[in-house]
């Protein structure tokens, strides 16, 4: 049995006149330490899958097993980095991470240890210079870093990221991708990340899960990315294997799953 097991998940939403079948028979097995990205057209149901794993949303049928235990409510063992950072704006950068640390390690660590752990995680994302700033006073990329630090600080079994860099400009996005790879190299987390950026998917992933269009979206194809790590985006630009993977994903998205409305 794999580490994280999503098996035959259906999600049906009640809507005004009837129901909307968002997901049908979504199944995925993830090994410990794997970095998985989910890619698919907008509205296909990527966030829905992630929310089911997070426990924020209940599957209509099927379910999720993490280390053979069923997941049915949210918890810090499945930390989420939300698309729009969702830092609490009345807490400082430090406090935003500390609130998570206190909650998860309130009993197992002393106050001093919790402080150190908070700072340690902010250092991981290179944000130790802004501990006392409010989220309103830092840039979008920095907020996303803090969001990642908050999630990492929970020491989750699975790190869930919903288009974490979606709202950022290309340069900031590249910086954050480097940070994520660097952190992944040290911590070797199990990561489930949503993206709609093909390059990001190939650069970061061990496997890319490509989803079909909704309604009743499901896993279309899974692409194993066998590029050696550490990966360097400049070197990869001319790498034939890299370009092959990239083309595979593009082919899936724009030939096999062309949006019906995007003629």
């Amino acid at each position: 049995m794999s580490y994280l097991n999503i098996s035959n998940v259906d999600v049906v939403f009640p809507i005004v006149n009837g129901t909307y079948i968002a997901l049908r028979e979504v199944s995925l097995e993830v090994e410990k330490g794997e970095f998985i990205t989910i890619i698919g057209h907008s509205g296909c149901g990527k966030s829905t899958v992630l929310n089911v794993v997070a426990g924020l949303l209940q599957a209509t049928r099927g379910g999720v097993l993490l280390e053979n235990r069923e997941v049915n409510s949210p918890g810090p063992d499945r930390a989420v980095v939300f698309q729009n950072h969702s830092l609490l704006p009345w807490l400082t950068v430090y406090e935003n991470v500390r609130i998570a640390v206190d909650k998860v390690f309130g009993k197992s660590k002393t106050k001093a240890e919790r402080h150190d752990w908070t700072v340690h995680n902010l250092k991981l994302v290179h944000m130790e210079h802004a501990l006392d700033k409010l989220p309103g006073a830092i840039s979008g990329g920095m907020k996303q870093r803090v969001g990642i630090a908050r999630a990492l600080a929970m020491q989750p079994k699975v790190l869930l990221m919903d288009e974490p860099f979606g709202a950022l400009d290309a340069l900031t996005r590249a910086h954050l991708q480097e940070s994520v790879m660097e952190i992944q190299a040290t911590l070797n987390n199990t990561v489930l990340m949503i993206t709609h950026d093909v390059d990001e998917a190939v650069l970061l992933s061990d496997r890319i899960v490509m989803m079909t269009n909704g309604p009743a979206a499901t896993v279309g194809e899974i692409l194993q990315v066998d590029l050696p790590r550490p990966r360097n985006r400049l070197e990869l630009a001319d790498d034939s294997a890299y370009n092959h993977y990239r083309a595979e994903v593009l082919r899936f998205l724009y030939e096999r799953q062309r949006r019906p409305d995007a003629a």
């Binding site: 924020l56 918890g75 969702s86």
Partner: peptide
């Protein structure tokens, strides 16, 4: 999103009120 953060952190009702609802 704020409420989802609270749910992931498994904050209790009182904590949600004190740390999220009131400041927000």
């Amino acid at each position: 999103d704020y409420l989802n953060v609270a749910r992931v952190l498994q904050l209790g009702k009182l904590e949600v009120t004190r740390r999220i609802l009131i400041p927000a």
